[in-house]
Computed example of a mutant assay.
Amino acid sequence: MSKLEMVKQSPDEEKHTADAEGIRVEGDKVFSCGDDGKVKVFDRDLKLIKDFTAHDYAVYDVFAFGDTLFTGSIDTKIKVWDINTFELKKTIEGHEEAVRKFCTDGKLIYAGDEKGLVRGYTPAGDSTVSYNVVEEVWSMYAKEDLLYTVRDRGITITQVKGEDNKYFHVQSLEGRAPIHATNDLLVFPDTSGLSLEVRENNKASHFALKGQLKGPEMIITAVGGHGTMLVTGGWDAELRLWDLTTMKETGRCSIPGVPNGIAVCENGDVYAAGVDGFVCKLKAST
């Protein structure tokens, strides 16, 4: 059986002073954001490099793309930062409600808000297209010309045409945020939030159900993964490690609180951030 073990937890003086909302890994840096308006930058050993106030209000997501860092906030603004100097490059307005999530198709960075507006930006932060998906965006993923948006309950998959509000509905799936996807697989909690559905990430198969992951005893709040390795966490303040090949749980570990974000790296490094501002590192190994 694989192991999932705690490696390090950020000390009280370095954690967020309010709930942490998200965590991302890019290269040798780990980025977290929180309701205190801050972004914290760590090295891969979770040594704090820098923290700075990105917005005056809660930061719901942070997203790294090349040499640029995007932050989205309840203040409805997106800010674009230099990923090395952390200098502000641009402030973007245009969303009318809180900006909740970012994702990329490899070309554009998409931002989804609580009004249901998804806007696409170039890596420089220039607006290109917008799609009104009607319902608030709690989780999001993009693949080629497909855009997956998730409200609290319900996954909507649309094919976008690269022009404002030019798209058509591909499929709706029962489920809830958060969503995790690879080129081959689509994973998300069912409507109860207690089990995970694993589906083919292929519109030709109509996103056919491949299996279910059962085991969490409380509602799932965060999902992350790399390849066939999946990590979930929820209200039980535990992270669970899953093998998507066998559809089995292979390890678990208690963490400092309920996670709002999980990032999983190819080498088995796992980072989580959540309630009361904690940020921690775990290691998955066989």
Rank of each mutant, 00 (worst) to 15 (best):
N201K: 11
Q212N: 12
E114K: 13
D190R: 13
L69V: 13
A142P: 01
E21P: 02
E135Y: 12
A273P: 06
H180P: 02
V279I: 10
N84D: 08
P259Q: 09
A20G: 12
V170C: 01
P178W: 12
W138Y: 14
L108I: 03
L196C: 14
F86N: 00
I179H: 09
I219T: 11
A98D: 04
F188V: 06
E14V: 07
T250Q: 03
G261F: 01
K77S: 09
S205I: 03
T76K: 07
V258C: 08
L209W: 02
L230K: 07
F188M: 08
W235A: 13
K248D: 13
G261E: 02
E14T: 05
S139Y: 08
D152T: 11
G175W: 07
V187Y: 10
I78Y: 00
F86L: 06
C280F: 03
G225E: 04
R44N: 10
V150K: 12
E87Q: 14
G34W: 06
T68F: 00
G162T: 04
V264F: 00
G34M: 09
V62H: 06
V129W: 05
R240I: 10
F63S: 05
Y110E: 04
I78C: 02
D184E: 15
K101D: 01
Y121H: 11
S73H: 00
E136R: 15
D28N: 15
K3G: 09
L209G: 05
V7D: 10
P123M: 11
D56K: 10
N165G: 05
G116R: 06
M140F: 09
I78E: 01
F31P: 14
G112E: 05
F278T: 06
M140A: 02
Y57L: 11
Q159H: 08
K203C: 06
W242L: 12
E97H: 14
V231R: 07
E200S: 14
V160T: 15
E163S: 07
